[in-house]
Amino acid sequence: MAEGVQYFLDSFKDPAAVARYSEGPRRFVPGLDGLHRMTGLLLAERVPADAHILVLGAGGGSEMKAMADAYPGWRFTGVDPAGPMLDLAAEVMGADAGRADMVEGYIDDAPAGPFDGATCLLTLHFLQRDERVRTAAGIRARLKPGAPFVAAHGSFPQGADERDRWLDRYAAFAVASGGDPEQVAKGREAVATHVAMLSPEEDEAVLRAAGFTGVEAFYTAFTWRGWVGYA
């Protein structure tokens, strides 16, 4: 396992970190609720009313909860390597938890499907490029032909001067959203040290290399990008 993945996985298994996890994404990710809403809409363009959706990086459960609320006929298979985060997902889903099967592990541990659609939000940036391609290809292999896949994660220019500028903006947004400056600074340093960020152009190329077609960007928010593609 890559060192960066292990660093963050250890955090996602820490009870104290899990207990306060829901605070983080809303402070660091602009328009998170809108991202969840758009994700559901992009899937709904092509999936049936009783769709089965694969959710990779499902820990925390916020995207599954949003989709479950908006699409009462959908069911989910949520995959995440951190068991405590899957427990949190079930808690967040509440009465809808019975509509989700939780699988502790990585894409190789996910059922073969075929699924009607898939998502991977705020997750792929933890992986090195080759592993991103392999993981995205594993998602595609589990989808029905033409099924939609929505991915969104950290992605910004990686030139020597650009990277630091965008990391500063990443931190500034979190502080402006109510984050503790000291904790935000630690988060910025962790991302700078342990996360293998790619540029938006490289990230889009990853999805194409994994075999997805019709790849389109639909979300751009400071240091975050989102795409939809089709199996």
Rank of each mutant, 00 (worst) to 15 (best):
F173H: 01
M85F: 01
T77A: 08
L54G: 07
R225Y: 12
T77F: 00
A82R: 05
L41H: 08
P114M: 14
D87R: 12
P181R: 11
H52V: 08
A90M: 14
P157Q: 12
W224A: 02
D203A: 09
G229A: 10
V228N: 04
M64Y: 12
K13L: 10
G146T: 15
S62M: 04
A110P: 06
R132G: 11
V92T: 13
V55Q: 06
W227C: 01
T39I: 12
G211S: 15
R208S: 09
V228A: 07
G146I: 15
A160Q: 14
H194Q: 14
R26I: 04
A66T: 11
G4R: 00
A147L: 08
W74R: 11
Y230T: 03
G94M: 02
P114S: 10
L198V: 06
G229P: 02
H153M: 01
A82P: 01
V29P: 09
A100I: 07
P72V: 11
P114A: 14
G34M: 13
E182L: 14
G98Y: 06
W227F: 15
L43C: 11
A16R: 04
A196W: 01
V228W: 03
R208L: 12
E91Y: 01
H153T: 07
E201W: 01
A205I: 07
R26W: 04
L56E: 00
P145S: 15
K144F: 12
R46E: 13
T135G: 13
G40T: 07
G105F: 11
G59I: 02
G187L: 08
R140Y: 04
G159L: 03
A210F: 13
L86Q: 09
G61L: 00
A82D: 09
P81H: 02
F28D: 04
T135P: 07
D130I: 05
G159V: 08
G179R: 02
A205M: 07
D109H: 13
L127K: 05
A151Y: 02
A205L: 06
A112M: 15
D96Y: 07
A68Y: 01
S199V: 03
R20A: 14
F28A: 08
V206T: 02
E104F: 10
T193H: 09
G146L: 15
E204I: 00
H194A: 12
M85S: 04
A209T: 14
Y71A: 04
R165Q: 12
F12Y: 15
A58F: 06
P200G: 11
A210D: 11
L198W: 05
V5Q: 14
A112W: 15
G78F: 06
A112Q: 15
G211A: 15
W74K: 07
E91Q: 08
G60S: 13
R26H: 04
R20S: 14
L86N: 05
R208F: 12
P114H: 11
L127S: 01
W74Q: 09
T213V: 05
L43M: 07
Y219F: 11
A231Q: 09
P145T: 14
A136V: 14
T135K: 13
A147P: 02
E216G: 11
F12R: 10
T119Q: 13
P157F: 06
G105C: 13
A44F: 03
G83Y: 05
G214F: 12
L32R: 05
A89P: 09
G98C: 04
D164T: 14
Y7A: 05
G34L: 12
S62Y: 02
T135W: 11
F156H: 13
A2E: 15
S155P: 01
F12L: 13
R188Q: 05
R208E: 10
A160R: 13
E216F: 02
F149G: 01
A147G: 09
